[in-house]
Simulated assay, not measured.
Amino acid sequence: MLRKAARMMYRFLILFFFGCVVILFYLNLNIKTPKEVIMLPKGTINQIVTYIAAQSIDANRLDSFILRFFGSPQSGWIDLGSLALSKGDLFYKLTKSKAALKEIKLIPGETMYFFFKDIAQVFEVEEQALWDACAKSPRCIEGSFIPQTYRIPYGAMPEDIIWFLLDYSQKKHRDFAKQHGIVYGSQKWRQILSKAAIIQKEAADLKEMPLISAVIENRIKRGMPLQMDGSLNYGKYSHDKVTPKRIREDMSLFNTYRYKGIPPVPSGSVSFEALEAALKPANVPYLYFVRTRDGKHAFSETYQDHKNNFTK
């Protein structure tokens, strides 16, 4: 019996030894990744392995088993550190290595033209690569990004940056639209977004937003052109003062002096406060407003009162 037990133990040790050799060999296999920084979703180990395999990273069912000994994969941005690493390094990075994050701020009313310039500078990526990544998604249009401060890993690829911004913003916009009984992505949603962009650029503060919204609605009902400078601060003109010459020469649909109604697309990013104001204009009869010396606006119902407000 003792000899039999000894033989069984010997065989077990031999199998264990060879098993360890095989696993060590497997963990030292070299693999390549298309990106140094990847975004891991939340999920089970099996789901994570399936996800990274879909990202063109060599992963299989055996990895799901071995990965359990390293710990639970993290969610969020993961810095792999290299495009070439071993299986063991990959498992370690998935469970232990978070990417270093940098901040980028999109201010309310700013356009993609300047936002992409800021991203390119902060994260040292090609600005054109951001536009190319944006062009691949029908969701990537002006007004798609929620204005706020974002934390994105340094080293992220342009397409990953755009995907992250769009994915985050779309989820927030969907929730907002659902709360207000609007179909996200519908014509009504796009019109509200575009109206909110004008409100964002015209209002001096949050209190003025419902008043600006009311002026827009009242002028549309009267068949009057909006004649608002904020709509002309689109794209590269975001920070330009709107002059009479610009009004005469700009032939785009953003020119609310030339064309009636709200432009078909937003002229910049919009806050949720501006969206709320677009949906809930103040119950006032105002048709005009002009900036006063204190930086706020004076509102009026008649053109004569509007002219008188120019002296304030």
Rank of each mutant, 00 (worst) to 15 (best):
P158L: 02
F164M: 08
Y168S: 10
G181Q: 02
A133D: 07
G143N: 02
R151F: 14
G181I: 14
Q170W: 06
G143Y: 06
W189D: 05
A204L: 07
Y184T: 05
S144D: 07
K195G: 03
F164H: 10
K178S: 06
I161D: 01
K207V: 15
K117M: 11
D205I: 10
E159S: 14
V125H: 03
G185Q: 08
F176T: 06
P158I: 00
S144C: 15
Q121F: 04
G181W: 08
V183Y: 10
I198M: 11
I152R: 05
Q200R: 04
P153S: 08
E159G: 09
Y150G: 01
P147E: 11
P158K: 07
H173T: 00
S169M: 12
K172R: 14
S144A: 15
G155F: 07
M157K: 13
L193C: 06
S169I: 13
D175G: 09
Q170E: 15
L130K: 07
E159W: 08
Q200M: 01
T149I: 11
D132F: 04
Q191T: 14
L206D: 15
D118Q: 15
E126P: 00
A203G: 07
Y150M: 02
P158M: 01
I198Q: 03
I119T: 08
L211N: 05
Y150E: 00
V122L: 09
L166N: 05
K136S: 11
D118F: 10
I212Y: 02
E124W: 00
A197G: 10
C134S: 11
A203P: 08
R174T: 08
I192P: 06
A156D: 00
L165G: 03
E159L: 02
S186K: 07
K178A: 14
R174Q: 15
P138F: 06
D118P: 04
P153Y: 00
M209N: 04
K195I: 02
F123P: 10
A135K: 09
C140E: 06
P210K: 01
K171F: 01
M209I: 10
P153K: 03
K171N: 14
W131H: 02
K136N: 09
Q148R: 15
I192Q: 05
F123N: 12
A135H: 07
W131P: 00
D167R: 13
H173W: 09
T149K: 04
A156I: 02
K136P: 05
W131M: 01
S137R: 06
I198V: 13
K172H: 06
F123I: 12
